[in-house]
Design a protein around this nucleic acid. Structure first.
Length: 267
DNA sequence: AAGTCACCCAACCGCGGGTGG
DNA sequence: ACCACCCGCGGTTGGGTGACT
């Protein structure tokens, strides 16, 4: 335990003495907060800020812990599986970042939100349509997501069955429309949510609030119908072949040619 | 080398809900 | 019932960085 933390007397702390700090956290601040949480656990962030001797608000401490210091936080590129899951869950719940983050172990709501804003919204902007528009959702559903699925299958080495490349979102994410219980169905769960070594399968059966969010999602039209299956799907753009974009990488999925194609379809 | 631009991400802000006095 | 406080969520912003000219 650091001398600062050991010697600090919460009871004598005077709020008026605080000259609150803002901006980036220092190594010393990180160490103080980490040490405090390791002893007292999470929660009571205002008390944590005071007792750890941090000149920060409780909110700032909470954010720093959850988004950065927490030992199980994952950093680095969002994987294909995670991208797929984000697209799927966002289509169902909208901007419920913290809720979506519950299904991406180690990822924070902030990270997912940033991913959405920087990557997904950028594509919508390039397509000159709103990210919440039906047209963009269909572009995601019938082109982006199938390409993700194909890439995931390709990289996992499993054979690609084009007749079932993409049926509907709910075909590989078994999310009951009237339930919060999200269960990943076999065999998809292996590549959507690879089970961390040494952990139980609990993460695959995460239970959350029993209240349905489906009805809460104001853009309710974002829900996918269940009936589609197979390679050809009927969209607002007309009959759409899932393989229409060929075999280019996802990174080039949204190249100018594709954007042009989509723009034609979206007219 | 310097300037500009776009992207990414950490952190802040405002708001609403929950809770205890 | 009211108020104050705390916590969590979603939206937004500002700084760092790399690519490009």
């Amino acid at each position: 335990m650091s001398a600062q933390l050991r010697n600090y007397d919460c009871a004598t702390y005077k709020n008026e003495d605080i000259d609150l700090r803002k901006g980036p956290w220092t190594v010393e601040e990180d160490a103080l907060l980490t040490e405090y949480v390791s002893i007292h656990g999470e929660g009571r962030w205002n008390a944590a800020a005071r007792c750890a001797g941090l000149k920060r608000t409780g909110k700032s401490c909470r954010l720093r812990w959850l988004n950065y210091l927490r030992p199980d936080v994952r950093r680095g590129n969002i994987t294909l599986q995670e991208q797929l899951l984000i697209l799927e869950l966002h289509s169902r719940w909208g901007n419920r970042w913290s809720k979506i983050a519950q299904y991406l172990p180690g990822r924070t709501d902030n990270e997912i939100k940033n991913y959405w804003r920087t990557r997904v919204q950028k594509q919508a902007k390039q397509l000159k349509c709103d990210v919440n528009s039906k047209k963009f959702r269909e572009a995601m559903r019938y082109i982006w997501i199938p390409r993700l699925v194909e890439r995931i299958q390709a990289t996992s080495g499993s054979p690609t069955d084009h007749s079932t490349t993409y049926t509907s979102c709910n075909s590989h994410l078994d999310i009951p429309a009237n339930s919060e219980s999200v269960q990943i169905t076999d065999p998809m769960k292996e590549w959507i949510m690879p089970e961390p070594s040494g952990t139980s399968s609990e993460s695959l059966d995460t239970q959350v609030s029993p209240v349905s969010d489906v009805t809460e999602y104001q853009n309710g039209s974002g829900l996918y119908p269940e009936e589609e299956s197979g390679r050809w799907v009927e969209t607002e753009m007309g009959m759409q072949n899932n393989s229409i974009l060929g075999e280019e990488s996802l990174d080039s999925l949204w190249n100018q040619e594709n954007i042009w194609f989509l723009q034609q379809q979206l007219m």
